[in-house]
Design a protein around this nucleic acid. Sequence first.
DNA 1: CGCCATTGGTCAAATAAAGTCAAATTTCAA
DNA 2: TTGAAATTTGACTTTATTTGACCAATGGCG
Lengths: 152, 152
Amino acid sequence: MALSDEITLFIRELLQQSDGVAELQRSDLAGRFHCAPSQINYVISTRFAPEQGYLIESRRGGGGYIRITRIQASTRSLLMHAVNSVGQHIDARSAAAFTANLLHADALSGEQASLLLAVTSDNALRPVPQPLRDITRANLFKHVLLTIIERS
Amino acid sequence: MALSDEITLFIRELLQQSDGVAELQRSDLAGRFHCAPSQINYVISTRFAPEQGYLIESRRGGGGYIRITRIQASTRSLLMHAVNSVGQHIDARSAAAFTANLLHADALSGEQASLLLAVTSDNALRPVPQPLRDITRANLFKHVLLTIIERS
DNA sequence: CGCCATTGGTCAAATAAAGTCAAATTTCAA
DNA sequence: TTGAAATTTGACTTTATTTGACCAATGGCG
């Protein structure tokens, strides 16, 4: 097996153990596998690229690191699914439940969830009488999710 | 974790506990972390700079100190101001203008602005007839901004 | 008033990582 | 077998951190 593949396996293992985030030191890893440090960059750019569903962050200098985060490949589809599951109208309680589920599945950030909750609250939609209110709420819910999908 | 980061954490903690103001003695801190005193200056200038929303004051000589004050006034007050400027109703164009201004002033992130635009669009509020629509829009606009303020 | 001990400030050098890129090498499929 | 693609390596670049030597302000004391 090629060295690149071994390193890939190793990083996968780290990701498994740490629930989707692996933080490593490049020279450390290079030492462990007796290879050039840039080999690590090669592995990352060929196996853990963004288009493969990973987020890469790093810092140089003392205490530097490379952090690889697996981004829920299904985030997009979870959001899509939510959009499609909501019909013409939805009440506040159901919208909140949807939101909580998406947050729990990491398909929404804490802030995104908060904003979605705010927008679909009865408080925010107080001026609109029923049954128009639930129709508007469904509309807003979908619009927000679609905006998030669009930007992801 | 790098020493700079640990010191940063420590200062953050102080800021938390003292509600936004931390007063410290440079050599003291340096002693606590076994580092050169100038390390403290480094941390302050890279992590607590004015452009990051902090005010730094200091005094040399006997009883000298360095005081770090968090100033969240700008973003927060910009958003507050926007909330207070919007009346009972607002049309889509005005809401978009407000949003663009806040984005430009860095009081909103790109995503926050996108979501705000989506929520206040005529498209999202299509089910609601005028003049109720503009009233609802104002309500939503404020709710979203207040949610952002609350979380900041 | 003028010294001087006590602080904090500045800056540049040394050190510690990570990034880039292209040449050299290996692997693999036609 | 051979040529393209993948891998491996290393020289050079960029960025971040750490340290230390030297400078500047402040307050107390004689």
